[in-house]
Design a binder for these strands. Structure first.
Lengths: 227, 227
DNA sequence: CGCACTACCTACTGGTCGGTAGGTATTCTG
DNA sequence: CAGAATACCTACCGACCAGTAGGTAGTGCG
């Protein structure tokens, strides 16, 4: 690092203007909060416009600081994106594992997990869109291999369905394809909300409409799995 | 212009300019084909990396020409994107309407349309990813309002399901939510193929695996709609 | 031949990108 | 109170972006 050629340092750089003393200084308490503000705004922007469609200036402006100040808190754009994404994964895994760990069996457990998913997505719609973009790009945008992280959950769910089908609790389906179908059915409603708004008369992502869609997905899956 | 010091013009430069006479000249027949090549490569790039992630240089390089030559065929990047997208829509609507116009009734018609969708998506996976990105961005990236174009088809399909449910052919579900669920279940398999590859042992988007998923979706929906 | 036309090129413009250098207030700490 | 640390700033960099200017081969037609 820092082996910048001396030739790049010009005299004009030294004569920086002292005209604008912004005075928007932050205390230590606020410092943590600035970091959080940046992460929150980044999530919003990355979900809305994607990685390439979001500039550090956009994020900085949303927070109310300049780009270099943002880069004081995060080493690079990729590092910032990575931190937002890691937080996404951690939040999701934590909340999903609570539902997965539940001792319920049969349809009750499926309903439990689906409900947890809906609640989770309802709380974090920006996460959903960001995840969708990540899946579209192959899930390997950064160091994290999204599929590899979710694979254990996926395998466990698949085994659960297979066991319940063997036991005759559920009608027979291909469990892995069933999971892919389910994940697509649920995620799409949240990721494509802006598009779906144009297909229906109500507005998607309102509390009422989410509940409507959740009820539909639950009854639809129940209808396909239970006699 | 051309105020380059004579001293900088080396013999190698002069020879270089004559060593590479591009010679990739195209006749009138090829001219149309260059346009097609550009559209094909654009589709590939826009599907792979999105609008913001694709530069005109990327596309031009894929075709084997320079960016200004590309802009000789299309007025701007947006115009190019628009033409690719319009072609997408036209292709889809044409092929879907054949299936929709069929006189089949009950489950046979659903199977017909689903099969047409699968065949369509299998033939044009790049279209699917581009569409997905468009839906993520709200479907109003350019002048075209994606949802408005599809709305008539959506309404007709919804009315069909309602009628069949009223007649007792299908079990009762909310038809509009059913369509959203269905579109998500099918589209996701194609749009997120790279991610799904990491969740399963087989490779998605092979002929065999697509058939497997189609069979699953058909039997799953049949299971949910028919007693 | 002369002239318009097409398809391509190199070389450039203005602007934006991510990132860096270096400075300045303010606060914490010894 | 001195010095380190923090959080912000302006001014800059090189790279890349979409798009333009202007030139040059080759083609078709009078």
């Amino acid at each position: 690092m820092s082996q910048v050629p001396l030739s790049q340092i010009s005299a004009s750089q030294i004569s920086a203007s002292q005209v604008a003393p912004p005075s928007n200084f932050r205390t230590d308490d606020d410092a943590r909060s600035t970091r959080e503000l940046i992460i929150a705004e980044s999530l919003r922007c990355f979900a809305e416009a994607g990685y390439n469609g979001t500039s550090l200036n956009d994020i900085a402006a949303g927070v109310g600081i300049r780009r270099p100040s943002l880069l004081h808190h995060f080493a690079s754009k990729e590092a910032l994106y990575g931190e937002v994404f890691e937080r996404l994964l951690a939040d999701w895994l934590e909340r999903l594992e609570v539902a997965v760990a539940d001792q319920a069996l049969g349809w009750a457990k499926v309903e439990l997990v689906l409900n947890a998913g809906f609640r989770l997505f309802e709380d974090t719609p920006d996460y959903v869109r960001m995840m969708r973009r990540e899946a579209l790009d192959g899930g390997t945008h950064l160091g994290i291999d999204l599929a590899a992280v979710l694979r254990p959950l996926f395998d466990a769910a698949s085994a659960y369905f297979d066991a319940q089908m063997d036991a005759g609790v559920f009608k027979r389906h291909n469990s892995r394809h069933l999971l892919i179908t389910g994940y697509g059915a649920i995620l799409t409603y949240f990721s494509d909300a802006a598009f779906i708004d144009g297909l229906i008369d109500d507005e998607a992502l309102t509390k009422e409409h989410i509940a409507e869609h959740r009820d539909h997905v639950l009854s639809f899956f129940k209808s396909a799995l239970i006699d």
